[in-house]
Design a protein around this nucleic acid. Structure first.
Length: 568
RNA sequence: UGUCCUGUGGUGUAAUUGGCAACACGUCUGAUUCUGGAUCAGAAGAGUUCAGGUUCGAAACCUGACAGGACAACCA
């Protein structure tokens, strides 16, 4: 309210949302002593993706905005699916995004004892019972969303018998599936989740943290709200599909409360992006079946994939702010994500010249064996980044696409008889096209105006176009990996009858083994960002060796020439 | 024959809580430019799913439709 001016300056960034408004409301009512505490609660059963980034930015962002705290808590109640590898990758990704949980790292498994005690308390209160029926029977008795359930024959066992049975479940006296502990709520509830939900099941799989200490594990619903409660969480933010769980969340909290503090669950719509899939199950499938090269394949919407692709934490955070938070289940256009990286990299990326599809040009009037050093600007958007030296010599490479023998009227680049500028170097004019026996262009013979050294002619004459180039002698031979959308359909998992993998884009990955980049990149480290002038943003891949750098395409530059061409 | 949630330009979000629809992306012009990038200036595009109602006044409140989604794992 007080910083209307600041808000206006930030335009669409840092905008408010319905959750902020509800929190403000809670604050005004002095709920929970005006304390704000959120948490990000991933299950360590896969790698984090851009949808998680939205949640991370939301939860940590709220803590920041309202002067509160945000915990990192692993929701590890199912040992059959969870692994330490995932725990490590998740912590790494959250940190990389720029967020800090300080000393507040928690696991639902930290609360296994307290949860177990609480279950016993519910049994003592007559609010929970052991059911010996099998999964199928219980499921049948649950009824359907439109038909009420029926009560289990074991529903009214004595407290003593329930206590004894639950202890024996916990001690490993029974096999998996023999029995479960259920909350005694209401089999006639219109909400399926209130029809005596299962809260503990027997599992013999060792847990990634507690080993074989426990023979029973709590279900999500029986762990989440309680964990929130014990951590003093005030706002438990989750995605829409948990909306129907909220009455159950509140039911458990009701039985836990010993003051007027209580956590509150608020749901928002998960992120959907065009041309990709966002479910952990489907991403896992792509990895397991080798449709992609691991969780960090640069085509994946995972945080690790985006990082390897060349996205920056800033760009992802800006993206999160821009898309907003609502309860409307929509789809965000990937172009907005792409815009966010371009925006950030434009301001920060080192400029460099690199030729992807080389075409040799021989400057006929340039002396042999001579190297001229030219000064180039490192980033026109940031003067403090300074300049660098780029070597020029008689033989250079330009981009095949920058030459056309018979150009259409709107093509401004090099063609026979035409003069163009080589960026930071000279004006050159194409005199001859040398072809092989098949009529393919082998190389070009050009002359340069030696007076135009540096890129301007003293007589002030203009050229219509400026090309990037690399001196053949000095070029660093590199591999460049080009990426396109993983799926060719906007909504690959939106088709009922067709498996999402049917829509995989066969051209989503293209390797260019021989590209030439200026010597400046020799000292680059993996993940360093560059703009290859006139092409796009690239970053150095982990697979690079000193002999052969490997670059990943992050995004292309906006290309109005390509747009012009596609108009036909 | 259920319960809950949602419905604003192509897309995503806003609208000081009832005051006459704003912003971003995208699109299209033009300027500028040693990146057909960036930047700058401008334009088109919704009358808020529909129908009633309350009100001087409704995107907002009420009623009813319609459309989409969630819920029947010993998953989270």
């Amino acid at each position: 309210m007080t910083d209307i001016i600041n808000t206006a300056e930030n335009a669409d960034l840092k905008k408010t949302n319905f959750i902020h408004l509800q929190i403000t409301d809670d604050l005004n009512q002095r709920k929970n002593n005006s304390r704000i505490h959120t948490r990000f609660p991933p299950e360590p059963n896969g790698y984090l993706h851009i949808g998680h980034a939205k949640s991370i930015c939301l939860n940590f962002g709220i803590a920041e905005k309202f002067g509160g705290k945000c915990n990192l808590r692993f929701d590890d109640t199912n040992p059959t699916k969870e692994e330490t590898e995932y725990v490590d990758s998740i912590m790494n990704d959250v940190r990389w995004l720029g967020f800090d949980w300080e000393n507040r790292l928690y696991y639902a498994s930290d609360y296994f004892q307290k949860l177990h005690d609480f279950a016993i308390l519910l049994i003592n209160k007559g609010k929970a019972y052991v059911d010996n029926q099998d999964a199928e029977t219980i499921s049948l008795q649950k009824g359907t969303p439109t038909r009420p359930g029926t009560e289990s024959p074991f529903r009214n066992r004595s407290v003593e018998e329930n206590l004894d049975l639950f202890m024996r479940m916990s001690n490993g006296d029974f096999d998996e599936g023999d029995c479960v502990l259920r909350a005694k709520i209401d089999m006639n509830s219109p909400n399926m989740h209130m029809r005596d939900p299962i809260i503990y099941r027997i599992m013999k799989t060792p847990h990634h943290r507690t080993g074989d200490k426990w023979g029973v594990y709590p279900m999500y619903d029986f762990a989440h709200g309680q964990s929130d409660y014990w951590e003093g969480i005030t706002h438990s933010i989750c995605t829409l599909e948990f909306e129907v769980h909220r009455p159950l969340y509140d039911w458990f909290v009701d039985h836990l409360m010993d003051s007027d503090y209580r956590p509150r669950q608020i749901e928002f719509a998960r992120l959907n992006l065009t041309y990709t899939v966002m479910s952990k199950r489907k991403l896992l499938e792509l990895v397991k079946d080798n449709h992609v090269n691991g969780w960090d394949d640069p085509r994946m919407p995972t945080i690790s994939g985006l990082r390897r692709r060349g996205y920056t934490p800033e760009s992802i955070r800006n993206f999160s702010d821009r898309i907003g938070v609502t309860k409307v289940d929509g789809v965000i256009d990937v172009s907005l994500l792409e815009y966010s990286v371009r925006e950030h990299l434009n301001k920060t990326a080192q400029r460099v010249m690199g030729v992807l599809n080389p075409l040799k040009v021989i400057i006929t009037n340039f002396p042999e064996n001579e190297t001229v050093e030219l000064e180039a600007i490192n980033n026109p958007e940031d003067e403090s980044m300074g300049t660098r030296i780029v070597p020029f010599s008689k033989e250079i490479y330009i981009e095949q696409e920058d030459f056309m023998e018979n150009p259409p009227s709107k093509f401004f680049r090099l063609s026979p008889g035409r003069e163009v500028r080589l960026r930071y170097a000279y004006f050159i004019t194409c005199n001859e096209v040398v072809k092989d026996e098949n009529g393919n262009v082998k190389h070009l013979l050009c002359t340069c105006d030696l007076a135009s050294k540096g890129g301007n002619s003293p007589d002030g004459r203009k050229v219509k176009s400026t090309l990037h180039w690399v001196s053949a002698e000095h070029a660093v031979k590199s591999e460049v990996r080009l990426y396109d959308r993983l799926f060719s359909d906007e909504n690959p998992d939106g088709h009922k009858e067709i498996d999402f993998k049917q829509f995989m884009n066969p051209d989503s990955f293209k390797k260019l083994p021989v590209c030439y980049v200026e010597p400046f990149v020799k000292t680059a480290k993996p993940l360093d960002h560059f703009q290859f002038e006139r092409l796009g943003y690239f970053n150095l891949d982990y697979d690079s060796t000193p002999e052969k750098p490997v670059f990943n395409l992050t995004v292309q530059l906006r290309d109005s020439w390509a747009k012009e061409q596609s108009k036909g």
